[in-house]
Amino acid sequence: MLYKVAKTVVAILLFPLFRIKVIGKENIPKQGPVLLCSNHISNFDPPVVGITSTRDIYFMAKGELFEKKFLGTLLRGIHAFPVKRGLADRNALREGLKILEDGHTLGLFPEGTRSKTGEIGKALAGAGFFALRSEAAVVPCVIIGPYKAGSRLKVIYGKPMDMEKYRSSKTSAKDMADAIMKEIKSLKEKYIEETTLLDK
Rank of each mutant, 00 (worst) to 15 (best):
F109A: 07
S134Y: 08
E119R: 14
G126V: 09
G158R: 03
K122G: 01
P146R: 06
A123S: 15
K154S: 13
A125W: 13
T117K: 11
V139D: 10
G112C: 08
E111T: 12
L124A: 13
T117L: 12
A137C: 02
L108S: 02
S151G: 01
A137N: 13
G118T: 12
F109S: 02
L132V: 11
G121N: 13
E111H: 08
G121C: 01
V138K: 09
G150P: 04
G126H: 08
E119I: 01
A131L: 11
V155P: 01
K159T: 14
G112L: 07
S134F: 05
R114Y: 06
I143E: 01
R133F: 09
G150K: 10
T113W: 00
A125Y: 11
I144R: 13
V142S: 04
I144N: 09
A136G: 12
G128A: 11
A123R: 04
Y147R: 02
A136W: 10
T113D: 04
A123H: 09
V139G: 06
I120W: 03
G112E: 07
F129Y: 15
V138R: 06
Y147M: 06
I156E: 05
I120T: 06
A149Y: 07
T117F: 05
G145D: 07
S115C: 11
R114D: 05
Y157N: 05
L153I: 13
K159P: 00
I156H: 02
Y157A: 03
R152H: 13
A125L: 12
L153H: 12
G158L: 08
A137I: 00
E119A: 14
G128H: 07
G150H: 09
K148T: 13
G150E: 10
F129D: 00
K159Y: 00
G128W: 04
F109P: 00
V139C: 12
R114V: 07
K148G: 00
E135Q: 15
V155M: 04
A131S: 14
V142T: 15
R152Q: 14
F129C: 00
I143L: 14
E111F: 08
L153R: 09
R114W: 01
G126Y: 06
E111S: 12
P110D: 06
K116W: 05
K116A: 14
K116Q: 14
V142M: 03
G126I: 08
Y147C: 04
P146G: 06
R133A: 15
I120M: 11
S115H: 11
A125V: 03
L153Y: 08
G158D: 09
V138A: 10
R114E: 03
A127V: 09
